[in-house]
Design a protein around this nucleic acid. Structure first.
Lengths: 335, 335
DNA sequence: TTGTAAGCGTTATCAT
DNA sequence: ATGATAACGCTTACAA
């Protein structure tokens, strides 16, 4: 590994001159500059980013925390983040919280110890205390929230238009004549859960359909829970004629369960689910999905974060970006 | 951020004493040591990894290059890598080659500039020159290859037992009475392509079925190409009664195309595909898959790399780890 | 047992 | 236009 010192020695110059030539900063003798540049190129000189970090107290790395990497939605988000970061000379350090609050806190500490320049995070399902994030913000540290956000932290946020997505899906089901639409969703305290529920309610209201609490099921990550939820829905006297599931794992679980029970989709029950699976059209039946703008979410969040990091004045005007959802109607909800 | 100097000043000690107390190295006065430890804990001292890196010329970071992050197989591999790296105090810097040789080379340079301690790589489909990897090895730099490997680089490698996987899938199809088994595969120069083809051939041989070159189709990443390949296979006088596809994208493409053509699966044509999709059982029809040990591949590769990095003596005995595949028989190949 | 000083690679400041 | 020096945070001979 060639260093500035090596070059200086070889060219009989001082390290500072070489440094300046390399970054063209001060008015250097053009010849000296050319000499240095040529020699550096010949020797494959690369500045040592670690020394740079130590000097400038910025690491040119950003941290990302997602609940799980191997999940179509999040891997697509990471893809978007990586694309932007890569172009702007940052690298991406990934951690997964595995939906655990403790792991999320540890990951944050880890990242700070690693001196990342900023953090992108989609908060875990079991995070209800945000002190670890607030502490970062208190220290003026750049944090951008995406997907699963919270009101408790004042910062940039990037989300999908969950309200609109749920509204559109519900309206679509209503337009096919469905009136008893079950709403299978995630944990009640999550922002996405609440926004989606509002979209659902709002669509019902638009068509004068009474909201029925018993059609809403909140499911944790226990696989048995969703099976129970579905069974109890089907046992209702006025049982549902449609299922709207609000997360990938729920969507797949609904499909698996209903098929196992021998229920005909969409004749008996229509199905629409939030999902970023790329194979929805190949499922049996081809599955109607509300698709989240995963890649764009990653890009947008990364852009906001990097702009913020690189901004000189620390006066930032926070806002929340809402990206459009896409409703793809397929056979599982077509009557 | 508290530094060793801060602690030294506060405690009226020298930085070196604090440093030694912190890592318990030299025989320090137990009381001094306790004092330092307590104060450090109270002040939330974390060693600055950047300073450590600059000093020790190791970054505690490993680089990973995959063709694409948002791909079920690779995201599962990354998951395995991350798990091991995280536990051992390393962080993972991810790059994607997007199947481009140029991007792969640039990613390697980028990683070296970042001073990662080692590299894990699954080579891109269009990499046929390995000089960029050989150069690393020439400098004694730790590189572990996984999934898509090459004979040209002598190092640790982790692969799935592609031969066995293809053999088992072919044998299964034969056992259901199929004799004209089409082999839809990736680019011919890839290690995985060759191994899988050998497994296929070998199974045919075992049952005295002549190998027919015209049943083998190599497909690039052009989506139209696979459609063409399928059409030409179906146009054969003695057209295939089974399709064996050797990569996720091919598998899905086969399914989409055959369904569009109105071909009945498995009655007309049986289908088995290499795939790490977690929803294969929900496809129409439920899809028989050869599943790669993605997570284990990531774990194993990371373990080998970190052991190597941390090894004192540089005499390493390279070997190639072969992990078992799993054949999951579902309706698409059951007669 | 503890302190001093040099060095990892780079750049900013202050000479010259 | 160029050079010397100090500093970023930490470790480690070497000295005391």
């Amino acid at each position: 590994m060639v260093t500035i010192k090596d070059i200086a020695k070889a060219l009989n110059l001082s390290p500072s001159t070489v440094s300046r030539a390399l970054r063209g900063s001060y008015e250097i003798n053009p010849q000296t500059k050319q000499l240095v540049l040529d020699y550096a190129a010949k020797m494959h000189y690369y500045p040592n980013p670690i020394a740079l970090s130590l000097k400038g107290s910025k690491s040119k790395a950003i941290g990302v925390i997602v609940p799980e990497i191997a999940h179509s939605y999040f891997s697509q988000v990471i893809n978007g983040i990586e694309e932007v970061a890569y172009k702007r000379g940052y690298h991406v350090v990934i951690f997964q919280s595995l939906e655990s609050y403790e792991r999320e806190v540890i990951s944050i500490e880890n990242m700070m110890a690693r001196r990342v320049d900023g953090v992108l995070i989609s908060i875990s399902s079991y995070t209800i205390d945000f002190a670890h994030l607030q502490k970062l913000r208190d220290n003026q540290f750049p944090v951008v929230l995406f997907d699963r956000i919270t009101d408790e932290i004042d910062t940039f946020k990037v989300v999908a238009d969950n309200f609109a997505g749920a509204f559109a899906a519900t309206e679509h089901l209503i337009s096919t004549g469905r009136r008893r639409i079950a709403h299978i969703t995630s944990l009640p305290w999550l922002s996405i859960t609440q926004e989606r529920l509002e979209g659902y309610k709002s669509a019902l209201a638009k068509y004068d359909i009474a909201f029925d609490e018993s059609l809403v099921k909140y499911c944790s990550f226990d696989a048995g829970e969703i099976t129970m939820a579905i069974k109890s829905l089907l046992a209702l006297t006025d049982s549902p004629d449609a299922f709207l599931s609000m997360a990938d794992r729920l969507t797949l679980s609904c499909l698996t369960n209903l098929k196992e029970m021998g229920i005909n989709i969409p004749t008996d029950i229509s199905l629409v689910g939030f999902s970023n699976l790329t194979v929805a059209h190949l499922l049996d039946p081809p599955f109607s999905t509300v698709v989240q703008p995963a890649f764009e979410t990653g890009q947008t969040a990364a852009q906001l974060l990097l702009d913020w990091i690189e901004k000189k004045d620390k006066n930032v005007d926070f806002n929340t970006k809402k990206l459009p959802m896409k409703l793809l109607i397929r056979k599982s909800s077509q009557l």
